[in-house]
Amino acid sequence: MRTTIGVEEEFVLLDPETLVPVERAREAQDALRRTGDGFGRVMAEFFPSQLEFASPVCETAGQALASITGFREELSAWAAENGLIACGVGLPYRVAQEAEVTDEPRYREIASHFGLIVRDHQLNGLHVHVGVADRDAAVAASNALRPWLPVLLALSANSPYWNGVDTGFDSWRAIHSRRWTTHGIPPRFLDAADYDRRTVALRGVGGTSDAGTLNWVVRPSERYPTVEVRVFDAQLDPETSVALASIVRGLVLASAGRATGTQAAEIEPELLDSALWHAARNGLAADLLDPRDGSLADARAVVRALLDAAAGGLAEHGDTAAVSAVVDRILREGNGATRQRAAMTEGGMRGLTAAISADAVSTY
């Protein structure tokens, strides 16, 4: 049985010489709103250097790819005309320490709870929505996705630098995210009623003011009939974003018994949390937690298990070949973090600038 996907991509505007964020996202948003309406929605983000694009509800991966590619074309053109670059990276290479959050009531309210953490929260992600029957189905999908989230992070890790320094992590964004009140992989819930009871109890605790401040990397959407996966760093190219979305859809279908695939074991929460940190550090360069039995295994073998788990849903939507091609490239050439480091090694700052620009054409 087929279902829908939606893709949300966050971008940051940078000075091409210094790679420091530039607070002109509102201008870009205003200029691109008319164009964006044809492809999806353009929205403000937490900092004035950031903006988010949300695709429409898509029946096919091809529709999602056309949507985000069209927006990237327009955004990259606007940035070039204004002496900037627009980037799909988990974190900017450098940050402006004096940056203030976007002047909107919600962002000011969130910022009021997080003190010095706010200044560093210049994170950019890829969020994937998969259509589900109801909230109970969304919770069931969240439960089933939990063991696969570390390998999904490893594939998508694209934030090795912070303040001009190589952090030694493939996803420093994932490490930043751990400082929120809720973070990482959520607990297992019995059903939607259990989820609602436990998340309502969190409100007012720490910085959790509402459902939107639950910073778990998968959660039922409060606005749409979807399960939302938020584990991914923003991506360098649109093909990878859509391939990751397609994999998530395949896993969700398998979790609902609507497609067959490799089954994950029940993994203890402390092991899953450690595995997410492990994936943020190593990416695909070493081993990863194998969801089939909770052991550490070669990263390539775990990626293949991931594709096996999603295989039925990928085949149902005609996505197998496209996803396999993208994953094969990632295994051959590296995730975004590897590609950023290679660009820096080969071409210095100019090489990195060229590699991270959110061009519509694949950077593979």
Rank of each mutant, 00 (worst) to 15 (best):
residue 148 W to L: 03
residue 151 V to I: 15
residue 152 L to V: 09
residue 153 L to H: 00
residue 154 A to W: 12
residue 154 A to T: 08
residue 155 L to C: 10
residue 156 S to C: 07
residue 160 P to I: 06
residue 160 P to D: 09
residue 161 Y to E: 02
residue 161 Y to I: 12
residue 170 D to H: 15
residue 174 A to I: 15
residue 175 I to C: 05
residue 175 I to D: 00
residue 177 S to A: 14
residue 178 R to P: 00
residue 184 G to Q: 06
residue 187 P to K: 01
residue 187 P to M: 09
residue 188 R to V: 15
residue 188 R to A: 13
residue 189 F to I: 01
residue 191 D to N: 15
residue 195 Y to G: 10
residue 195 Y to S: 07
residue 200 V to R: 13
residue 203 R to W: 06
residue 203 R to E: 05
residue 205 V to N: 03
residue 206 G to L: 12
residue 209 S to P: 01
residue 211 A to G: 03
residue 215 N to E: 04
residue 217 V to Y: 01
residue 218 V to K: 02
residue 219 R to H: 10
residue 219 R to D: 01
residue 220 P to R: 13
residue 221 S to M: 10
residue 222 E to C: 10
residue 224 Y to R: 09
residue 224 Y to F: 15
residue 224 Y to H: 14
residue 224 Y to V: 05
residue 225 P to F: 11
residue 229 V to Y: 08
residue 230 R to N: 03
residue 232 F to K: 11
residue 235 Q to K: 13
residue 236 L to N: 06
residue 240 T to D: 03
residue 241 S to G: 10
residue 243 A to N: 07
residue 244 L to E: 02
residue 244 L to F: 06
residue 247 I to E: 00
residue 247 I to D: 02
residue 247 I to R: 06
residue 248 V to R: 09
residue 249 R to S: 01
residue 251 L to K: 06
residue 253 L to P: 04
residue 254 A to N: 13
residue 256 A to T: 05
residue 258 R to C: 08
residue 258 R to Y: 07
residue 258 R to A: 15
residue 259 A to N: 03
residue 261 G to A: 13
residue 262 T to Q: 14
residue 263 Q to E: 14
residue 263 Q to V: 15
residue 263 Q to D: 02
residue 267 I to A: 10
residue 269 P to F: 13
residue 271 L to S: 08
residue 271 L to C: 00
residue 274 S to I: 03
residue 274 S to K: 02
residue 276 L to G: 02
residue 280 A to P: 14
residue 280 A to W: 11
residue 281 R to E: 04
residue 283 G to L: 14
residue 287 D to G: 15
residue 289 L to S: 00
residue 290 D to R: 09
residue 290 D to F: 09
residue 293 D to I: 12
residue 293 D to Y: 11
residue 294 G to L: 09
residue 295 S to Y: 04
